[in-house]
Amino acid sequence: MDLKLKALTKSLWVFHAACSPCNNCDIEILDLLTPRYDVERFGIALVGSVRHADVLLVTGVPNYKTKEILKTLYSQAPQPCLVVAVGNCACGRMMFKDSYNSPCAVDELVPVSAYIPGCPPKPEAMIAGVVKLIQKVRGKK
């Protein structure tokens, strides 16, 4: 396996893109950084700018406004950039599927590499999702 991918999987910097979620998912994501779960052990850190990001963490159902913003964000991120959809909303729009304000799902806008279902998903589920994502990235090579 080449060095680039190995380094990538050992140091995932996460940019948190909230596409109009109900905020529960975001609270659960922040739980990952607390002493109880502490994902910094694996080199995962939250960054402020999308230019530094390796992972785009998307929560919520895109609406007409955030749809464009999410597309721009993805195009601004340096490649290789992975996208993770957190929560039922981001995975498949759930009960907002027929809403007047929900034009499309996240994976119709950007290529999603991992789906983490749950409403909101438990921090353990998110860690399991990230582990699967890392295995996927490594397995590809």
Partner: peptide, 25 residues
Amino acid sequence: IQWRVGPPWYQNFVDIVKLLGKETI
């Protein structure tokens, strides 16, 4: 100090190597 475990000792080296492999915009 924050009662966490913290990253392994080679973390910053890995960060630098990873950044070298990323696209420069």
